[in-house]
């Protein structure tokens, strides 16, 4: 594998680990970034993922994994500072800007991302995507939500069922 290209400054060369996606693509990342995942952190602490072995991730495809790693690499320095109590306001604003851009993607990618974040236990990413999806729904009428989330227009039967439900749940409407 390639030699680690960036030093950490503190302890010389950063340790690298290899992750293997479901379609057999290999990704090499710093252990610190991969450790944002609680699941991977345990494996890495056990000494896994180094050298030629790699950690197989059968539930995550390469497109999703590269996106996940993009998030991890960006957030790793702040996470290493323990939730960044001494991060400057500029750093925090920069991370926020990155997060906003980061979730500005197709819905299908969002859902793969949140599943991957859930499986890999990356709490920050999971709640970032959840918030994004919630923002897409917020303040919309049920029909608008259907359209936004890509539900096909209801068939007459579905429409009848919907009406029945709106009657039953009349108390939930203002």
């Amino acid at each position: 594998m390639a030699a680690p290209e960036s030093g950490d400054g503190n302890n010389g060369a950063a340790r690298m680990v290899t992750l293997i996606s479901s379609d057999n693509t290999r990704f090499e990342v710093e252990a610190a970034a991969a450790s944002l995942s609680q699941t991977l952190q345990l494996t890495i602490l056990d000494g896994g993922g180094g050298g030629g072995d790699g950690i197989p991730l059968p539930n995550v495809d390469s497109a999703t994994l590269s996106k996940v790693l993009e998030y991890c690499i960006k957030h790793a320095p702040a996470a290493a500072n323990g939730g960044a109590p001494n991060a400057t306001a500029v750093d925090r604003a920069e991370l926020e800007r990155f997060d906003n851009e980061f979730v500005n993607i197709d819905q299908s990618v969002l859902y793969s991302l949140i599943m991957a974040a859930h499986n890999l236990e990356i709490e920050g990413l999971q709640s970032l995507v959840a918030k994004k999806v919630a923002d897409m729904i917020k303040g919309k009428s049920p029909m608008e939500i259907r359209r936004t989330l890509g539900f096909p227009d209801p068939t007459p039967e579905e429409q009848a069922e919907m009406n029945a439900h709106m009657l039953e749940y009349g108390w939930a409407y203002e």
Binding site: Q107, S108, V133, G150, P152
Partner: peptide, 8 residues
């Protein structure tokens, strides 16, 4: 879009 609905 329909696939998105299934995914979510």
């Amino acid at each position: 879009l329909a696939r998105d609905a299934d995914l979510i």
